[in-house]
Amino acid sequence: MPQFKLPENSRVQPGKTHPAPAGARDVRTFKVYRFDPDSGEKNEVDSTLTFRRSCREGICGSCAMNIDGVNTLACIKATSEIRGDVKIYPLPHMPVIKDLVPDLTNFYAQYASVKPWLQTRTPAPPDRERLQSKDDQEKIDRPSACILCACCSTSCPSYWWNSDRYLGPAALLAAYRWIIDTRDEATGERLDDLEDPFRLYRCHTIMNCAQACPKDLNPAKAIAEIKKMIAERQH
């Protein structure tokens, strides 16, 4: 059965508060989820909050977390967009390593499993790159903009319940990006690999992925297109 309750040591309890320094202006309360795998064993000291971050401009995808109930990138989410207290949690339904750092091992393996690289049998022209029309390039323009932050997959209920077998919106968007790349020659094999009740058809067009995507991409539409292509080759 799906897990509807957090494990005992992950249930949210009231924690520490740090009052604003005297004379501070523009005071906002931040409520940040903390998870210490060793809690209960060692003395509670004020250790540093752990989270991933790198580019601070929404392109590396490291700082994906659940802010004010929505998966997004912390670096491009403005505090002014949020009313009242700012609640910050790690990406939902992933194993938490510490504080706001989820374990994305399975997520990355799923990305690797769709072979996100150009597969061809025709050798590239010796004197130049493989050509593609402008229109064809534009088809992969948007799906290529995915930064693999995992906001979409971890917002998807289907992914929560069956992430061991369902590839999730991010990996499927990546698969789609290579399926529609006119230079790729493994389209059939790619569709074969996806045609599976769990890998692909766990998507029920819930659309949380499109809503969560901080890059305004639409993985749900890409998945629908994959389903249409698989139907097309049978009719």
Partner: peptide
């Protein structure tokens, strides 16, 4: 892949 599910 089960190579199925599209029929369903």
């Amino acid at each position: 892949s089960a190579k199925g599910g599209s029929g369903h």
